[in-house]
Amino acid sequence: MINKFEIGTLILRVVLGLTFFVHGLVKFQGGIENTVDWFESIGLPGFLAYGVGLVELLGGIALILGLFSRIVSVLIAIIMVGAILKVKIAAGFIDGYELDLALLAMSVFIAINGSKAFAVDQIILNRKKS
């Protein structure tokens, strides 16, 4: 039986996954070269755009499915800390890093607690135990 905590965590996991999947998809649909150029314009190595885009795209799918949720959430948390410190902090809280901070909190929550409800990881683990 799924408890309220797991239902709440499932909602966070799916919303976080969907959010990052769409962000990653947009990076690749719009031409990842644009993101590479933007990374370089703010002083980051351009190749990081590929890593960030892949974590967002594939990590978003993994979160939605409940696959490697803790690991993906740690990677997303790292991306959010970088986004806040490198890009958003100068704009302040409102219209700056407020959304990034909320996404960071969601990812840290899932990294700490995991998410078992309707998760592929749990299906695999339950089959191995049987």
Rank of each mutant, 00 (worst) to 15 (best):
N3G: 10
L10P: 03
V14W: 02
V15L: 11
L16W: 03
F20R: 12
F21K: 02
G24T: 04
L25D: 00
K27D: 00
K27P: 06
F28P: 02
G30A: 05
G31L: 09
I32R: 00
D37T: 12
W38V: 09
F39W: 00
G43T: 09
P45T: 08
L48A: 07
L48K: 02
A49Q: 03
L54C: 10
E56M: 11
L58D: 02
L58V: 15
G60I: 06
L63T: 01
L65R: 03
S69V: 13
S69H: 01
R70D: 00
R70W: 06
V72E: 02
S73T: 06
I76S: 03
I78H: 01
I78D: 00
I79M: 13
G82I: 11
L85M: 12
K86F: 10
V87W: 06
I89E: 04
A90N: 14
A91V: 01
G92R: 11
G92W: 07
F93P: 06
I94Y: 13
D95M: 08
E98F: 02
D100Y: 08
L101F: 14
A105N: 01
A105L: 15
M106Y: 10
K116V: 13
K116A: 11
A117Q: 07
A117S: 04
F118S: 01
V120Y: 07
V120I: 15
Q122Y: 12
I123N: 05
I123V: 15
I124G: 10
N126E: 14
R127V: 10
K128Q: 10
K128I: 11
K128M: 12
K129V: 12
K129D: 11
S130W: 04
